[in-house]
Each structure stands twice: as C-alpha cells, then as structure tokens.
C-alpha cells in the first residue's frame, strides 16, 4: 500500500530570518503519511517537530518564516495553494489540535459557538444545524451533558474538558488528517490516557490519519504505527513502531529510548543511573559540521565530524541518517 500516501512532505525547509541571523528550524525533512495511519513525530524540544506541523497548514507567519520544498496533500502542493483554497483545507480536510488547551479557546465565546463556527465555515450548514452538530460532537468526545456545556464559556471547563472540546472542534468536519501537536502535554496522566483513547477511537470511526507530535515515547508506543525521529531540523530515523523500540538504529534514538525510566530497573545492579544523552541540542544558528549529532554521540567516528551522513534505506519504511549504517 505504499502508493496510498495521504500526505507527502518532500525536502521541506523552513528558515527564520531574524535579527540574530538565519535559523534553519527545519532542514530538508521528508516523510509521508499513509491513509488511516498514526504517524509519530518525536524529538527533543526545538528539533523542528512543531514547525513541521505548522508548515503543513502554513500557520507560520511569513516573514520571518521562509518555506521551501513540497507538501503534497491529495494531489495538491499546500505550499503553493492560494489563500482561499488553503482556507478550505484548514479545519476541513486537515485540522489541528494544539498543545495548550487552556489558551486555545476564545474566552469570550461559548464552547458551542466555537465548534459551530468551524462547521458553518466548512459544511455550509445553518447556525442551528451547526449548533446541533457541535452538541453532537461534544457528546462524541464524551463530555457529560453536552447541551449545557455547549452554552458554557471556556473558563468553566477543566483542562481535560477543554482539550476534548478542541478535539470535538478538530473532528467536527471529518478531517482526513489530524495534526496533534503534543495534545496531552498539559494534562495529567489519567486524562492523557482518556484523551488518547478517544483520539484513537475517533480515528477509527472517521478513518482519518493522525500526525502525533510528542516527546512522550510511551504515547508513541501505544498510538503510532510508524515513527519519525527528528533531531536539529532533520529526520534521523524512521521505522515501524515495533522495530523502533526493539531495535533502534540511530545513536540518538537509542539515547532517547535509554533515557526513559523503567520502574524496577534500578534494582538491576549494572544500571544504577538513568541513561542520558550528554550535551545539549546545538544552537539553531551554529549547527555543527558533518553530522549534527556528532558532538553528543557516543559512537562518533572521524567522518561524522567532516561530512553529513547519508540517509540509509534499511527496508520497508525503515531508514536512518547515520554513518554507522552507510
């Protein structure tokens, strides 16, 4: 089913021209999303995950952002689409869930009005029909007494409820692709689980694909089918989720997986300390030469300092950007 790509990103580059210089936040990213799959996008803060997601809907203010490359969605290059066509796709075929449920709802409009707004815009329903649909969506995301909640203002809802409302809004127009940018980061663990269950269930019902952006590897293990690992604006590894966890190829991925604490592990004598990746993410203005990960890599070779590593294809949706496998 490799021809069934819903979204293909090819050689996406995002640069920010700012006072301090040119920041290459995303530097030649490519990956694709199949129909109905959940793709996990992982990496440290500042590696370009969110910028990649934002550029899919062209949400970055430009200037300062400069986009280059190709984002193909249903046969159209989103980066070259005129504004009015793009507006139809935003919230229609592609919708987005943001990181902060506390601030992503307008405090002066009721929950129902905000969900209905998206529906009116994309489905041409009347106000009343849109309102009914909004209430129905609230019920589908398991908000108790949805009619009453639709009339409430955001300040009356808890963080988990608001994120549900955001999900209801995002799914109200039956999108083909859902961009979830750390949808559960601001929520506590039990709510996280509920939200993820909900997203998974709705994904199946609607048949949408999801790009799940997170640095929570537990979430990835549970939700994603394929995982793309990013580091310093580049894709460093892509793999089906099982293979990524059982056999990570890139030293960075190995480091990421190793740094997840496992309850009970400390009793094993050989591992007293939680593993970490030494050093910090390089400054976006001064990327190291050669492989961008080499200053922090425990398996660094001479060539890593000099030349950029090639992308090595290792099988079906399995590739790694590293000299070790070249």
């Amino acid at each position: 089913m490799s021809g069934d790509h819903l979204l293909s990103i090819r050689n996406l580059k995002v640069r920010f021209r700012v006072y301090e210089g040119v920041a290459a936040a995303v530097d030649g990213v490519d990956f694709f999303v199949e129909k109905g799959e959940t793709l996990g996008l992982v990496g440290e803060s500042g590696c370009g995950k969110s910028v990649t997601a934002m550029s899919i809907l062209r949400l970055l203010a430009s200037p300062p952002a400069e986009l280059e490359g190709e984002i193909e969605f249903q046969g159209k290059n989103l980066l070259e689409l005129p504004q009015d066509e793009l507006r139809k796709i935003r919230g229609g075929a592609i919708s987005m869930i943001f990181q902060e449920p506390m601030t992503s709802l307008n405090p002066l409009l009721t929950i129902g009005e905000q969900i209905a707004e998206a529906i009116v815009l994309h489905q041409g329903l009347s106000r009343q029909e849109a309102w009914d649909r909004a209430v129905e969506m609230l019920a589908r995301v398991q908000i108790p007494s949805p009619e009453a909640r639709a009339k409430d203002y955001p300040h009356k809802l808890s963080g988990g409820m608001r994120q549900r409302a955001m999900i209801a809004m995002a799914l109200s127009c039956n999108p083909n692709l859902l961009l979830a940018d750390e949808p559960t980061t601001a929520l506590d663990v039990t709510i996280q689980a509920q939200i993820m269950d909900l997203m998974e269930r709705l994904r199946e019902e609607i048949g949408a694909s999801i790009i799940l952006i997170t640095h929570n590897l537990g979430l990835i293990a549970e939700m994603a089918r394929t995982v793309v690992v990013m580091y310093a604006g580049k894709v460093v590894e892509e793999a089906p989720v099982r293979e990524l966890f059982s056999e990570p190829l890139h030293p960075y991925t190995q480091g990421l997986l190793g740094s997840v604490p496992v309850i009970g592990r400390k009793f094993k004598m050989e591992k007293k300390r939680l593993q970490e990746i030494p050093g910090i993410v390089p400054s976006i203005f001064e990327m190291p030469r050669g492989c961008r990960f080499h200053p922090r890599c425990h398996r660094m070779m001479d060539i890593c300092r000099l030349e950029e590593p090639p992308m090595v294809e290792m099988g079906q949706r399995r590739r790694v950007l590293c000299w070790l496998w070249a």
Partner: peptide
C-alpha cells in the same frame, strides 16, 4: 498571539471574521 487566534486560523476562519469575532 493568543493560541485561540491561531486555532481560528487553523480551522480556516477568514481574516475579517477572526477580527470581528475573536
């Protein structure tokens, strides 16, 4: 700069409507 304005853009709300409603 509020997220809800970004969210409104992300659901495809036209500029004039964002200005008026949000």
């Amino acid at each position: 700069e509020q997220v809800y304005v970004e969210a409104a853009i992300a659901v495809g709300t036209p500029d004039l409507r964002i200005i008026r409603r949000h």
